[in-house]
């Protein structure tokens, strides 16, 4: 609002406004994209092909040798087993929970950030980004100290007589969620703030002038317009969350085994590259599914809320 952004159009959530902005078709954008695409294609593509090839060979524990599913044995072993499906469900549940908590906690911060004068905004951004500057292991062990049975939180609860015995704040799903929210919140805040910043303050003022309450303004004007930011943030948070490894390892205390931990176990501890690769590809497909899901949701919500 202060730095001269004059984006009156809501961001292209409806799809129609995007077409108006397209520039004349030239080859330049593609040329500019080419180096990074080539690099990504080569590295990521090769890795993916290798992963696929590995996943099609039998692993350490073959499923029914000689059966018709010979090449897909590793996938059958995963998908036909309620244990692995259960761990996949745990991974997705934690992913969705962390995403929701990040969105709820991150939105107010993003709003404050977007409304702050530039100087203070820069300071706030720096503070918000600090979790990303710390090593994940240090960050997780920091929480171990805080959440422990003899940590400050439990000591306070015990001293004030609110509880008789220490509350179990970690070595369960709660500790994992706390650690992951701490790590991923900055992504959500910055995604939402970048969209909120570009919104014309006049829209908000008009809504208030025309009789909407503050909540109504948020509900009918701000939220729909900032939804692309929320969805972009959710996509990043969700995918990073379900592929997190260190935080669940340390704060789960062995009690929470998310899919990345099981992949690590197969590949590193057991040297079973084949089953590990199959699990990694299943996780990739699930992450892509989540990505598409969030986009579809954004499109639906955007269409519903679009003032006609």
């Amino acid at each position: 609002m202060v730095d001269g952004t004059v984006a009156v159009d809501p961001p292209a959530s409806a799809g129609a406004s995007g077409e108006r902005e397209t520039t004349t078709p030239t080859a330049i954008p593609y040329l500019l994209l080419a180096p990074s695409l080539l690099l990504l294609g080569l590295l990521f593509g090769t890795a993916l092909v290798l992963l696929l090839a590995l996943s099609l060979s039998p692993g350490a524990i073959p499923v029914q040798p000689g059966s018709s599913v010979r090449f897909l044995g590793n996938y059958v072993r995963f998908l036909a087993d309620t244990y692995y499906l259960g761990q996949l469900a745990v991974t997705l549940e934690i992913g969705l929970l962390v995403t929701a908590v990040c969105a709820l906690l991150g939105y107010p911060v993003a709003y404050t950030l977007a409304k702050a004068p530039p100087g203070r905004r820069r300071l706030m951004m720096a503070i918000i980004a600090t979790p990303l500057l710390t090593d994940p292991i240090i960050r997780a062990y920091g929480w171990v100290v805080i959440l422990g049975n003899e940590g400050p939180i439990n000591r306070l609860l015990l001293r004030t007589g609110l509880v008789d015995a220490p509350v179990k704040l970690m070595y369960n799903w709660l500790g994992v969620v706390i650690g992951l929210v701490h790590f991923l919140l900055p992504f959500m805040i910055l995604s939402i703030a970048s969209v909120l910043q570009k919104l014309d303050v006049a829209l908000e003022e008009a809504s208030l002038n025309l009789g909407h309450t503050r909540f109504g303004t948020f509900r009918r004007v701000l939220l729909p317009l900032s939804l692309p930011g929320v969805m972009a943030g959710s996509t990043i948070v969700f995918t990073l969350c379900i592929s997190a490894f260190v935080t669940p390892q340390i704060l789960g205390g062995g009690a929470i085994q998310m899919l990345p931990n099981l992949i690590y176990q197969q590949i590193v501890e057991l040297g079973d590259l084949n089953f590990g690769s199959a699990m990694a590809l299943i996780l990739l497909v699930v992450a892509l599914g989540g990505l598409l899901g969030f986009q579809a949701m954004a499109r639906r919500l955007g269409a519903e809320e679009q003032p006609s």
């Binding site: 422990g148 049975n149 003899e150 062995g254 009690a255």
Partner: peptide
């Protein structure tokens, strides 16, 4: 109600914290 640990440093920390 067991804590599972994977490394000596991890269990050292669990002892130091009284867990």
């Amino acid at each position: 109600k067991i804590k599972i640990f994977e490394s000596a440093s991890q269990v050292a920390q669990l002892f130091q914290q009284g867990e």
